[in-house]
């Protein structure tokens, strides 16, 4: 069992995923499990930020600039969302510094 993702982790998109934008939402397909996923507009924004490896705390900071949300609410929701993605192997932790 992997450890839950926290604010201090650096994460990025998993391999073997295809995504497409649709009316502000994002659709994902995992080539690993063959499942389809739909991300709402906030989830889609997080997904677009994950085009490169990022610190989870930085993702929260980006979102707080763009959406009207309190700090603890934002952290809670982002961590919940990212751990859901991690559960289905859609993101991976890459804590080694990325040059």
């Amino acid at each position: 069992m992997n450890q839950a993702i926290g604010l201090h982790n650096t994460i990025q998109r998993a391999d073997d995923l295809v995504s497409c934008d649709l009316d502000g939402e994002t659709a994902l397909m995992s080539a690993v499990n063959g499942k389809y996923y739909g991300l709402n507009p906030v989830g889609s924004r997080i997904w677009s930020l994950l085009e490169q490896a990022r610190l989870v705390a930085d993702i929260c900071a980006f979102l707080r600039q763009e959406f009207k949300v309190g700090s603890s609410q934002c952290q809670h929701d982002v961590l919940f969302f990212l751990n859901e993605l991690a559960r289905d192997n859609l993101v991976k932790v890459v804590d080694e510094p990325v040059a």
Binding site: V18, C20, D21, L22, A31, G34, Y36
Partner: peptide, 13 residues
């Protein structure tokens, strides 16, 4: 499968 998904996305868009 990937191509199919991308084409479906293009079509839907």
């Amino acid at each position: 499968k990937n191509r199919h998904f991308e084409q479906c996305g293009q079509t839907a868009r």
